[in-house]
């Protein structure tokens, strides 16, 4: 009795630690991201203190409406991501898949807005190294350099997040294997194939083999999907970090006029 209880606790603890370890790893990565963006914010603050008037003037050329809309889009995508994780936690993988799809679409809309925003600036010959920009005041040059560097790096993170969520969507939506075929039950070889004709098991049996027992354990779709919960949680952490960075980028670039 006590042995059984102990074994059960041990198993539980082991699983628990694995989950915690995976999350700690993700958070450590997020801290490196935090320091990277943090140092960019530091550069921003330094130049802004040196050239307050240029920064205010340059920021007034950005459309706060586009910035606000993109803020709302990213905040909403963070909500759908959190809800996707909550849904998978409740074994509702179909709901989770839909919410992940919505998250990817919202990330896409954010990037499309960014594309139009950057295009408009490019059309006015305003980009790092452009002739117009090189003739501007030092502070204005630094503002636009930082604007492109910081929103560009952030945009790459949005893109990376969308790709990771897409992979997770595929993993969660993927159906478990349904059909298995036992092939070649002869003394020389035993093979087990799944419905995509992939070999699951090949035994190079010898002459003395007479009997093979195969136990197939079927997993329900939700049980299989739930295995990805920790990966989806870590994906969510990354996506929320991208949202966090934007929360600071938005007022510092769009709202300082």
């Amino acid at each position: 009795m006590s042995t059984a209880a102990h074994a059960d606790t041990g198993h539980h603890l082991e699983h628990h630690q694995d989950h915690t370890g995976a999350k700690i790893g993700m958070w450590l990565f997020l801290f490196t991201e935090l320091l990277m963006f943090g140092s960019l914010f530091l550069v921003y603050s330094d130049y802004r203190m040196q050239f307050p008037a240029d920064f205010h003037y340059s920021a007034s050329t950005l459309d706060p409406l586009v910035g606000t809309i993109n803020t709302l889009i990213l905040l909403t995508s963070s909500l759908t991501m959190a809800l996707a994780i909550a849904a998978l936690d409740r074994n509702r993988h179909r709901v989770a898949v839909r919410l992940m799809g919505v998250t990817i679409v919202l990330g896409g809309i954010f990037l499309i807005n960014k594309y139009f925003e950057w295009s408009a600036k490019f059309a006015h010959d305003l980009y790092p190294g452009s002739e117009t920009l090189s003739l501007m005041a030092e502070g204005e040059r630094q503002f636009f350099n930082l604007y492109y560097a910081m929103t560009g790096l952030h945009g790459l993170h949005v893109l990376a997040g969308m790709i990771i969520i897409a992979v997770m969507l595929w993993l969660v939506a993927r159906k478990p294997r349904q059909k298995y075929m036992l092939l070649d039950v002869k003394p020389a070889r035993v093979a087990l194939q799944d419905d995509s004709e992939r070999n699951l098991l090949v035994l190079p049996a010898g002459e003395d083999l007479h009997e093979v027992h195969v136990t197939l354990v079927y997993e329900k779709h939700e049980e299989l999907s739930r295995r990805h919960l920790i990966h989806l949680e870590n994906t969510g952490l990354f996506w929320h970090l991208v949202d966090l960075i934007w929360i600071f980028l938005f007022p510092l670039f769009y709202l300082i006029t």
Partner: peptide, 10 residues
Amino acid sequence: KSSLVVLYFM
């Protein structure tokens, strides 16, 4: 705002 995101969403 970021505290809300970290505390609840994360």
